[in-house]
């Protein structure tokens, strides 16, 4: 084992972590907003709006993310004069924004399905009870529907965030030097694929483990009703501990 090489590789790959996290978090945030919009469209009482959302989900879940990225990064270059005329070219010529755009559009499709599942799992009796006590419209959603739906959707959304961290690696194909991009560069320079792979893999595992714990923490924080109620004895035990 060549530990100096492993350590140098680790330091080099570590410099890609901020970009990996940046891509994952920014696109998850944009994607979540779009996912909420899609979910509302899907649940709308006006059918054609729902069909549009359904078609969107079908297209983005049925095609590879890399193809979506290529359509946006390379494909839109075909319309450069038009995009320049509209002032959008500054945005689409940057691989960073193209990656963010593709990742957000992609995760929104998966996210909207997760949110829809969460919303549909809100018990009807709770909505009825809220209505009976005079809540309606946005208040009903803010106080009753969204908290329950988010709580129910959170585990699945957590896996989606992990998938997003993994998906950011595709940005390396459109020239972004995040962890996988740096790893590919190092492998082609040193031809030591196994060592670089082990280090890069370890970085992703640590990132994903940290995110899993964070989601578990949020889940715990959002479901106080599932935690055992504090009792006199447990409090006493804490004091003695």
């Amino acid at each position: 084992m060549d530990f100096t090489f492993l350590w140098e590789t680790f330091l080099k790959l570590l410099s890609g972590v901020p970009l990996t996290l940046n891509l994952a978090l920014v696109s998850t945030a944009f994607g979540a907003l779009l996912a909420v919009l899609l979910t509302l469209m899907r649940l709308s009482s006006w059918r054609p709006v729902g069909w549009v959302a359904q078609f969107y989900v079908f297209v983005f879940r049925g095609t590879p993310l890399l193809v979506q990225m290529f359509v946006i990064y390379y494909g839109l270059g075909q319309f450069r004069p038009t995009l320049q005329a509209w002032g959008l070219w500054v945005f689409f010529r940057e691989p960073y924004w193209c990656a963010i755009f593709a990742l957000s559009l992609n995760t929104a499709a998966y996210g909207s399905e997760i949110l829809r599942g969460g919303l549909q799992a809100v018990p009807h009796r709770e909505v009825e009870a809220a209505r009976a006590s005079g809540m309606w419209g946005f208040l009903l959603y803010r106080r009753i529907v969204f908290p329950i739906a988010i709580r129910q959707a959170l585990p699945a959304y957590g896996s989606e965030i992990i998938l997003m961290v993994k998906a950011t690696s595709l940005a390396s194909v459109i020239t972004m030097l995040e962890v996988t991009g740096l790893a590919a560069k190092l492998i082609s320079q040193s031809y030591r694929a196994v060592e670089v792979f082990v280090v890069a893999g370890l970085i992703y595992l640590v990132l994903n483990f940290a995110i899993t714990r964070l989601i578990a923490l949020i889940e715990w924080w959002l479901s106080p009703h599932l935690r055992p109620a504090p009792t006199v004895s447990s409090g006493a035990a804490l004091h003695h501990a």
Binding site: I162, K166, A167, T168, S169, L170, S172, V173, T180, A183, A184, I187, S188, Y191, A193, V194, F197, A200, G201, Y204, L205, N208, F209
Partner: peptide, 19 residues
């Protein structure tokens, strides 16, 4: 299952290709 589901597929492809 933990490792292979936790790392990007692209890395595995590079491993097999270059390795």
């Amino acid at each position: 299952t933990t490792v292979l589901r936790g790392i990007p597929d692209l890395l595995v492809i590079y491993l097999f290709y270059f390795g």
